[in-house]
């Protein structure tokens, strides 16, 4: 078991000496941004021109669903949100610190990406995880 929380997805990096961040892979030819490592760009087809880029933590709400029924054991309701980051990447995640009520959610609202424990979820080895969440940016 690890002493430190593990990243919830492989595109989250947790440096020993610094803040966690999300890493994108950006095509050197067409600037398309991907989550997770890859060598070929599915937009333009160029090979071996991927570079890494630290994703922005600022963005705006593009779309959402308010989930009232999920699989057993998953706490509801929650907001499943799609956020366009300022650097052109798009992420999906839980939007927190907003009431799960369509009246309280505005398209385009400024969002920030924050990092916190993965709702207490642990894997079969007992490891805890660091996740990312969206919250309104003031």
């Amino acid at each position: 078991m690890s002493d430190q929380p593990l990243p919830v997805v492989d595109y989250m990096k947790i440096p020993d000496d610094g803040d966690p961040y999300l890493e994108g892979h950006k095509c050197g030819k067409c600037d398309a941004i991907y989550l997770g490592e890859r060598s070929i760009c599915s937009k333009c087809g160029v090979r071996d021109q991927m570079g890494t880029t630290k994703l922005s933590t600022q963005g705006n709400l593009y779309s959402y669903a308010i989930v009232h029924r999920s699989f057993p054991g998953i706490e509801v309701p929650y907001i499943s949100a799609v956020v366009d980051l300022d650097d052109g990447a798009t992420l999906k995640g839980n939007l927190i610190n907003v009431d799960p009520d369509p009246e309280k959610i505005e398209f385009g609202m400024p969002i920030e990406v924050i990092f916190a424990d993965a709702l207490g979820r642990k894997d079969s080895d007992g490891n805890s995880y660091l996740s990312y969440f969206f919250q309104p940016r003031s």
Partner: peptide, 21 residues
């Protein structure tokens, strides 16, 4: 591997995916 991402990184259930669309 790891932990379930459902309800943590949004929802992958079909009603939610099509709600977002």
């Amino acid at each position: 591997s790891g932990i379930s991402k459902e309800g943590l990184l949004g929802s992958g259930t079909m009603p939610a995916v099509f709600a977002e669309a």
